[in-house]
């Protein structure tokens, strides 16, 4: 008896979400989101990616609670221990618990990936959409700039920036963001070019809409899905670049538990104590894979054209 209101409110929520016609703007938006969510659920691989990433976020949030150790505290008496009950993923050459370091490292990795996405995404989107819509000299200048950035391999570019700015996580983030926005801008421009001649843009122009309004409210929403998909897919590359910079000693500095730095310091023990390098390596691979799977799934969800 007691759970009746719960189930009825649940079924009515479902009915509200699946009603054939929405009656408020909020319901319409919720319904659109609900349909996207159902499409995402239907894609197993994307769902797996999403679950891994949610786990990563959870780990980053509550990681310290899951382990009795500190990521920095050294205990040379237990150095290079293989995986055991006490140390599920073993210990490193300074006797630090590797699982603890991986858990703490998730925070750094997630933060870097997120910061890069937050810097590179908007820059790329704005540059690309504006260049594609306006055309003319702005387009020429913006795209030549993109060409210059694209003509260097992104890791080399990031290396050059870090060399100039000095090693460290913040500079690594800036460096990676600077090398990540050009492909996004190019993608957004391509999308903007296909819509700038469309009737709905023309219709809005005939309402008196300004160029700013057209770019912000009409062109960008069209570019946004492919940019989101691209960033998600690039996320793997961003994490690898971050790890690569860490590995080369130009990103996070020891003793920071950044995965790339851990991999680098574990390298010299690879043949004798495999878990030092293998665990951060596996973590990097898993998260990169998860982002790739999710990106592929988002392509299905965010493209309503074949609905």
């Amino acid at each position: 008896m007691t759970d009746t209101p719960v189930t009825s409110s649940r079924t009515s929520l479902r009915a509200w979400l699946e009603a054939p016609a929405a009656s408020t703007p909020r319901q319409a938006r919720a319904q659109a989101a609900w349909r996207g969510w159902k499409r995402l659920l239907a894609n197993r691989a994307a769902l797996a990616g999403l679950i891994v990433l949610i786990l990563l976020v959870v780990i980053a949030a509550i990681g310290p609670l899951l382990t009795p150790y500190s990521p920095m505290s050294q205990d040379l008496s237990v150095r290079l221990q293989p995986p055991s009950m006490l140390h599920p993923l073993g210990t490193d050459d300074l006797g630090r618990d590797i699982m603890t370091r991986i858990l703490y490292g998730a925070r750094i990795t997630l933060m870097m990936a997120l910061l890069v996405a937050l810097i590179a995404g908007p820059i790329g989107l704005i540059m690309g959409a504006t260049a594609g819509y306006l055309g003319g000299w702005f387009d020429i200048v913006a795209m030549r700039l993109v060409d210059i950035f694209l003509s260097f391999p992104s890791l080399i570019l990031a290396l050059a920036f870090v060399a100039a700015l000095g090693p460290g996580i913040e500079n690594a983030v800036i460096a990676i963001a600077l090398s990540a926005w050009p492909p996004i801008a190019r993608l957004a421009r391509a999308e903007a070019l296909t819509v700038r001649k469309s009737d709905y843009i023309a219709a809005s122009r005939l309402q008196g809409a300004s160029s700013t309004r057209l770019i912000l409210r009409h062109v960008m929403p069209i570019c946004l899905p492919s940019v989101v998909i691209r960033i998600t897919l690039n996320m793997a590359g961003i994490i690898l670049t971050a790890a690569g910079l860490g590995f080369l000693g130009l990103g996070a500095q020891p003793p920071s538990p950044e995965w790339g730095a851990m991999l680098a310091s574990g390298r010299q023990f690879m043949l004798t104590n495999w878990w030092l390098a293998a665990t951060p390596g596996a973590a990097i691979m898993l998260v990169s894979l998860a982002f790739n799977l999710l990106g592929d799934g988002l392509r299905d969800v965010l493209d309503p054209r074949d609905e």
């Binding site: 703007p25 319409a28 938006r29 469309s198 009737d199 709905y200 023309a202 219709a203 809005s204 009409h218 929403p221 069209i222 309503p304 054209r305």
Partner: peptide, 13 residues
């Protein structure tokens, strides 16, 4: 416009 399939913004309510 001629084509109602292209004269409304596909992502806007």
């Amino acid at each position: 416009f001629q084509d109602p399939y292209s004269s409304l913004h596909p992502r806007r309510m």
